[in-house]
Design a binder for these strands. Structure first.
Lengths: 188, 188
DNA sequence: CCGATCTTTCAGAAATTTCTGAAAGATCGG
DNA sequence: CCGATCTTTCAGAAATTTCTGAAAGATCGG
């Protein structure tokens, strides 16, 4: 009986280790791939990787943890952590009895979505609107057919982008549940 | 009387020239700024500039026209024109009696939007979904609390991204008018 | 105030992306 | 088939972005 218990215990240990290994692999893959994807999104690779790492971290992590895990320099880790904090995708956590800062990711998908939507709007929609309305204004008095066509093209773009901007605000300000309901209607 | 007519004619010429000048300036600004914006969108500057140029061109343009206007090399112009054609944002136009290819932009804002949405989905949403479902699957059997948390996080992200993907399809496949109607409801 | 520990900054290096210009390839009329 | 004209490709250059590692700065307990 002693032997059996021992053997079972060993088996359990093995299983646990194998599972831990599998999890580590899956997580590493997620971090690496998410980082690669970041470049497509116009976000830098490291920033996306850190975000992925923290989103799947069971505990808040320090700058050194991140450095070690992703094998990146302190400067790089620091800059991107702060950038993520600025976006609002991660938070600084202070632990009592600890001098170091810990970082923790926002894990709620709806929150993540609204943050990314807000940031994209700021970087992509708003500057576009500014350009369009300026160009529309500058060309508004021109009488030649080309001038009128240009003015109208600017206006059409401006209207559309402005409209997209409003939509984005509306959707972002919804509660998760409501957005889903809305969508169900739209998809149903 | 002769003098007056002549004088009026001169005045008219001046006005027309001044207007043409103003239009040229507005258009140049649009092209330059739109290009700068392109980088934010993860599209290269030249591609965005060419698109802006063609969107505001009264006539289809040749590769040489584009080269001259934007002061870029033939290779650069060619590559980006073809890329825009691949996206579907511009079309090749053949003129009878002309060997050269002319390019013409899609000017309908709703069309532009659906094309960009489709491309973004392909580059941003679909790879994300692939990663998420792979990682979810790989971690589905793991029993440890960390494993379960990881699996659930992957699933939550997968569901959300999948949902966004479906929404994007739905909206893109709407007719312009219907989308507007829909939006009016949402915004009203 | 001092040393220890942690955070921040930034000049130059490395990596990545984009562009040039020339050469090769395609297609046309004659 | 030939020369003229236009398109395509691509190696290396240039521009841009990202990263490193070290130095400077901040904050704490004692």
């Amino acid at each position: 009986i002693k032997f059996l218990v021992f053997s079972n215990f060993q088996y359990l240990l093995k299983t646990v280790n194998a599972e831990a290994e599998k999890l580590k692999q899956a997580r590493d893959e997620f971090v690496a791939q998410w980082g690669a994807l970041g470049t497509q999104w116009g976000i830098n690779r490291t920033m996306a990787q850190i975000h992925a790492l923290l989103m799947t971290a069971p505990q808040p992590m320090t700058t050194d943890d991140v450095m070690e895990d992703l094998e990146i320099s302190r400067g790089n880790a620091h800059t991107n952590l702060k950038e993520l904090v600025a976006w609002g995708l991660i938070r600084v956590v202070v632990k009592k009895g600890e001098r170091r800062e810990f970082f923790e990711a926002e894990k709620d998908v709806w929150q993540i979505f609204t943050i990314v939507a807000r940031e994209r709007k700021r970087r992509e929609i708003e500057p576009a609107l500014a350009i369009l309305s300026k160009c529309a204004e500058e060309s508004s008095g021109i009488k030649s057919p080309e001038g009128v066509a240009f003015y109208e093209q600017m206006r059409a773009l401006e209207d559309f982008v402005g409209f997209a901007s409003k939509m984005s605000d509306r959707i972002s300000s919804m509660k998760h549940g409501f957005a889903l309901q809305m969508a169900a209607k739209l998809l149903g």
